[in-house]
Design a binder for these strands. Structure first.
Lengths: 204, 204
DNA sequence: GTAACGCTGTGAAACTTTTCACAAGGATTC
DNA sequence: GAATCCTTGTGAAAAGTTTCACAGCGTTAC
């Protein structure tokens, strides 16, 4: 029973929307309401939620709290996952600020940078280590996931070090298609490609 | 003849890979070589390239220079497209540094921020205007596209202003699903969703 | 009670995307 | 020049994803 990347992405979105609903005090929600917030369709929402096993009531819809709980059981690891950030340039610092605190299921536990000036500092509560200690520190800290925010030419070498350190997933911001061994999941977040697409479709 | 988002994304990737190949001095390339670099398959590459009308030689493959040219005719606007950045926080500054210079087909012509401290400054060659001048300045400068890098609660209001100013495409970094009018293309680049997916698939 | 309503869960249809498989054809070798 | 090789372009099959459509049901109205 493998769930596709698309479905998982939407489930993550639904959970966020449901948290907004909970904050607004909603107790129940219908698939078409969730769909309106997700800019999707009711049928799509119901189909996606099938993978959870959780069932809504035909008359009241989904209990917001319970559905959030079911989504969290499905999406989250039993324990908080530790993330390493590699590359503390402009983008890396922005990512630290963006992720720190906001997401209880992740901790950016350590960062790495090649610049000796940055090594030893603590940014947003995250200590910066030397790049050549990557493997050792990552193993020692029990890091599960990594975010790569280094220049394109260095990304593949960084990834190789991460694989050796036993990392299981990578979020790659460098505009390079990374090779990954069996069993490691890599997501490429290619901002240049995204802007290119906006430019293409933005003129019909 | 509508080309899908996925195909356009891969064409953008192929052009980047072909530029690398050109820099390495390659004159011709086979579909399976391009596929290896794109972490894809030869059949996929050939199918994607069909939309260009450009044809390779059965014996030599694709002429690198010519294929780059055909891709550029397909992907790029006739004139350089002007982009506005809205929100010059940590992420906005990182995006300015990331995009400026590197992409001849775009210019980040102006930026906007709500903080009066930042208004009037020039970051990476890009002048920062007040948020309430958004509509006026965007029209005046003839802005085609926008990048939204403001906090989530402000994103929809910013988008509404951009629509009024006649923008045609948006790249949205805020974790909010934006509503868009007919004819405007919005791409959601949701970093939290991406990290969530890495966390999910990174443990099988 | 009973009827009416409008929802969920889900088979099946429709549509989209990827992969297969092969005819056609240049280049190279003999 | 004929044979061989390995490629491209593309119909057709396969796989994947979304949408349709409706049976079944809890709730509310009367």
């Amino acid at each position: 029973m493998g769930v596709s990347e698309r479905v998982v992405g939407r489930l993550i979105l639904y959970r966020r929307l449901l948290k907004d609903l909970a904050d607004e005090g909603a107790g129940y929600v219908f698939s078409h309401e969730l769909a309106a917030r997700a800019k999707s369709t009711a049928a799509q929402v119901r189909r996606d939620l099938m993978v959870l096993g959780y069932m809504g009531s035909p008359a009241r819809g989904y209990a917001v709290r319970d559905l959030i709980a079911a989504l969290s059981v499905f999406l989250d690891a039993p324990e908080r996952q530790k993330v390493a950030l590699v590359g503390v340039g402009n983008l890396g610092r922005a990512l630290l600020a963006y992720f720190v605190g906001r997401h209880p299921q992740f901790t950016i536990a350590v960062a790495f940078d090649a610049d000796p000036q940055k090594v030893g500092r603590v940014v947003n509560g995250c200590p910066i280590h030397a790049m050549d200690s990557l493997g050792q520190v990552a193993r020692q800290e029990g890091i599960d996931l990594a975010i790569i925010a280094v220049p394109a030419p260095e990304a593949q070498a960084v990834a190789a070090e991460l694989y050796k350190a036993g990392i299981r997933g990578i979020l790659n911001f460098a505009p390079v298609r990374l090779w990954a061994p069996e069993g490691v999941y890599v997501e490429h977040l290619d901002m240049t490609m995204s802007l290119g697409r906006v430019a293409y479709f933005g003129r019909r």
